[in-house]
Amino acid sequence: MKIRVGIAGGAGYTAGELIRILLGHPNAELSWILSGSHAGQPISKVHTDLLGDTTLSFSEEPDFYSVDVVFLCMGHGKSAAFVNDNAIPGNVKIIDLSHDYRLDAPDNDFVYGLPEMSRDKIKKASRVANPGCFATAIQLALLPLAAANLLNEVHVHAITGSTGAGQAPSSTTHFSWRNSNISIYKAFEHQHLKEIGQSLRRLMPGFDKALNFVPLRGDFTRGILASVYLDCNLSIDEARQMFDDYYADAPFTVRSDQDIDLKQVVNTNKCLLYLAKYEGKLHITSIIDNLTKGASGQAVQNMNLMFGLDEKAGLYLKPSAF
Results as ranks from 00 to 15, higher is better:
173 T>W: 02
173 T>V: 00
173 T>L: 04
173 T>H: 00
174 H>A: 03
174 H>W: 15
175 F>Y: 13
175 F>D: 15
176 S>G: 02
177 W>T: 09
178 R>E: 04
178 R>Y: 02
179 N>I: 03
179 N>T: 14
179 N>W: 06
179 N>Y: 09
179 N>R: 14
180 S>C: 15
180 S>T: 03
180 S>G: 05
181 N>G: 11
182 I>P: 13
182 I>S: 15
183 S>G: 06
183 S>D: 13
183 S>M: 06
184 I>N: 07
184 I>E: 11
185 Y>E: 14
185 Y>P: 04
186 K>V: 07
186 K>Q: 10
186 K>H: 12
187 A>L: 10
187 A>N: 11
187 A>Q: 02
187 A>M: 15
188 F>K: 08
188 F>V: 10
189 E>S: 12
189 E>A: 06
190 H>L: 09
190 H>W: 03
191 Q>E: 13
191 Q>V: 08
191 Q>A: 07
192 H>I: 08
192 H>E: 09
193 L>W: 05
193 L>G: 09
193 L>K: 06
193 L>T: 01
194 K>S: 01
194 K>A: 14
194 K>C: 00
196 I>Q: 01
196 I>Y: 02
196 I>F: 00
196 I>T: 04
196 I>L: 00
196 I>H: 05
196 I>R: 01
196 I>V: 09
197 G>F: 06
197 G>D: 11
197 G>L: 09
198 Q>F: 06
198 Q>C: 02
199 S>R: 08
199 S>M: 09
199 S>C: 01
200 L>I: 14
200 L>T: 12
200 L>V: 12
200 L>F: 14
200 L>M: 15
201 R>Q: 12
201 R>L: 15
201 R>W: 04
201 R>S: 05
202 R>L: 04
202 R>V: 03
202 R>C: 03
203 L>R: 05
203 L>E: 13
204 M>E: 13
204 M>F: 05
205 P>M: 00
205 P>Q: 08
206 G>A: 15
206 G>P: 12
207 F>A: 05
207 F>P: 09
207 F>K: 12
207 F>N: 07
207 F>C: 11
207 F>E: 05
208 D>C: 09
209 K>E: 10
209 K>P: 00
209 K>H: 04
210 A>P: 04
210 A>K: 15
210 A>E: 14
210 A>S: 15
211 L>C: 14
211 L>T: 07
211 L>G: 02
211 L>P: 13
211 L>R: 02
211 L>M: 03
213 F>Y: 15
213 F>V: 07
213 F>L: 11
213 F>W: 10
214 V>W: 14
214 V>Q: 07
215 P>D: 08
215 P>N: 10
217 R>V: 01
217 R>I: 01
218 G>L: 10
218 G>K: 08
218 G>R: 07
218 G>Y: 07
218 G>W: 15
218 G>E: 11
219 D>L: 11
219 D>W: 04
220 F>C: 02
220 F>S: 00
221 T>V: 10
221 T>M: 05
221 T>Q: 05
221 T>D: 10
221 T>F: 10
221 T>Y: 07
222 R>D: 14
223 G>E: 07
223 G>M: 09
223 G>W: 06
224 I>P: 02
224 I>E: 03
224 I>F: 03
